[in-house]
Design a protein around this nucleic acid. Structure first.
Lengths: 357, 357
DNA sequence: CATGCGCTCGACAACGATGTCAAGATGTAA
DNA sequence: TTACATCTTGACATCGTTGTCGAGCGCATG
């Protein structure tokens, strides 16, 4: 219980300090700290005492500089936004797998900004991340070629790589969207609207394709007014849905191709009091979807599974395994909850069954 | 467009390679890379060309090892769980402030596990994080004294430090909980139940104190069966709420002291079909609370504001400012949405208005 | 012409740690 | 006793980079 507040911040002790105090060489101190063995018991004890007394903590960055493989035991994750549920679930899954191996995750938010993506890659690679897990926002990731050639494992998640040949963990967005549309059509809908994210995002394009082709499988051609792209926030989506539903010949069902868009659409339907009339299927699940009125039917992705798979690929590469880059698909799952089963005109135009929303 | 896939991973180029190619010394190359000036234009150009040709990227960990202040431009965040909304909003706010300064965030999930907390602190400090932002789970953080003495800025968020004297950004949990209770009592409730998180968490204890004292201000003594602690998951909370509401003389209002607990309680009320009868105020806001039926009244914290404030403190310390550690309070805000305004018996016992759930 | 200044530039050491290697101590077998 | 293997140990170089410092040059000044 010393009183003086150590005004001059004590320099952090180094291995040299430990060695000096223990009366051994730095190399021997290093051996003890790393449990290398081949050190006399008496010296081991002396070093351990010195470590405890000085509260010594090895400088991991210095040691990884010298070590043979140069690993920093950190892998970088470029996420869309650490605060959105999809990204943070992915982040958590990566962390869980990495934790078992004593590896840290460096995470950053790309915010759909290609420049930001490059800045983050630069920041992470200069910090010698051992591997990169990327949810890309740019149109081409050719700039990663150098890293890939240098042997850094790179895994893309959610969106396919362009201009580089690396592993990817993707969702079959096309099939998922098509399943949503088939579901709506099966419930009697013909006028199905599409509300989607930025067309610059590959997954948005794929989902839109799936939407279009599924409708066309049923011989339906969506009216152009029922297709809205480039919605990236709840507010965007809400306004777009309001506009859509206020038009003439409004859609009887909505397919919303991203979770924030889905939530915006729910808001719009609520405001209009039509949430029990207009069917809705969203792509991507979100917390509390089951507690809304009606509960929201979604095509669920499994970000945790994607994260675990991506982390697995990273570690297998880090462990020295070799294979040609592969695309892995994680299945989507249609979660039927209510909003997608609201019947459309083609199913029950004359008489509705007794139960109402 | 070479065909061979560079089977032997090319060693990453170093400053020496750049210098060699440019025909200058490593020191001059370093000067150019760091924009130090005092280098002839011709050599600057030569170095820049070499950098471009080799796709050279400086090894940031090596340079921070040598640099005078030894800063790594990374600050560590020990969060409860990177995937929960409170933590990830905090994370994002930290990142936003740090980004402007070219600083990274190292985040890790503590999961309310004191051992994990120490492991993370160890991992982050051995990696030479410049500062620590901590949402602690342990009972005492005396073990951080060494770091603090070494001059590492440490800021606690959401929970007060114990055993170390550092800055903290807290919420007045006591007052927030009391406000919730006053609100419920004002709406006619006398039998108010408490459903709360692990008592090992300081904020849970404070919220419970606030609950108890606010009730006692109104001359109400809560029945012991109406107090449930140590609920840490939605499932826990749901089961507890079901049990509570099935008992005799069940509460007419619930105060749920954490967001997952609130959601669990909502689930229980739904299952019983009593969500329009039993009032509910939760501590901590959550996404879509406004879209539930009824919308959930909460005492909202502002994790973004807390993160920004914490990051601000960190950077002021890193910039060399000095002050004695201080506790900063970020106000809570009662967000009135509906569930907390369901009238209780003391307000309208005889005749209810017509509308029913 | 000698002097001094300012500008470039590179040799060298150092950051904190570990890989390499050989020296010395000890034990064992012939 | 000698020869040889084994175990400990530390001196030294090194990882990739930057801080220090002084050498060399050209130029203006007196």
């Amino acid at each position: 219980m010393t009183q003086e507040p150590a005004r001059v911040p004590a320099r952090r002790p180094t291995l040299r300090d430990v060695a000096l105090l223990a009366g051994v060489s730095t190399k021997t101190a290093s051996r003890v700290v790393n449990g290398e063995g081949g050190v006399a018991a008496a010296k081991v004890a002396a070093v351990q005492q010195a470590v405890a007394k000085l509260d010594y903590r090895p400088n991991f960055t210095a040691s990884s500089l010298r070590r043979l493989n140069g690993r920093t035991a950190a892998i970088a994750a470029l996420l869309e936004d650490v605060a959105n549920p999809f990204s943070s679930a992915l982040h958590r899954a990566l962390e869980d797998v990495a934790r078992d191996r004593g590896v840290m995750i460096l995470a950053g938010s790309v915010d759909e900004d290609p420049e930001r993506e490059r800045a983050l890659v630069h920041a992470f690679t200069t910090r010698q991340a051992d591997a990169l897990v990327v949810v890309p926002a740019s149109e081409s990731q050719r700039y990663l070629a150098g890293e890939v050639n240098a042997g850094t494992p790179v895994v893309f998640v959610d969106r396919p790589p362009v201009g580089v040949d690396v592993d990817a963990v993707l969702v079959d967005n096309h099939a998922g969207a098509a399943e949503a549309v088939h579901h709506l059509v099966a419930h009697g809908h013909r006028r199905v609207a599409y509300l989607g994210d930025l067309l610059s995002i590959a997954t948005a394009r794929q989902r839109f394709q799936g939407f279009k082709e599924a409708l066309s499988d049923h011989g339906i051609r969506p009216s152009p007014e029922h297709i809205v792209h480039d919605l990236h926030t709840e507010g965007d989506a809400e306004r777009a849905a309001l506009r859509l539903l206020a038009g003439e010949a409004p859609p009887t069902a909505l397919f919303t191709a991203q979770n924030l868009v889905t939530i915006g659409a729910v808001r719009a339907l609520r405001e209009l009091g039509r949430h029990h009339e207009v069917a809705l299927v969203g792509f991507d699940d979100f917390p509390l979807a089951d507690l809304l009125q009606p509960p929201v039917t979604v095509v669920a992705q499994d970000p945790s599974a994607m994260g675990r798979l991506a982390a697995g690929l990273v570690f297998r590469r880090l462990d020295g395994e070799h294979w040609t880059p592969t695309v892995h698909f994680v299945p989507t799952r249609l979660v039927v909850r209510g909003s997608g089963e609201i019947p459309g005109p083609a199913l029950s135009p004359p008489a509705r069954p007794g139960r109402s929303g």
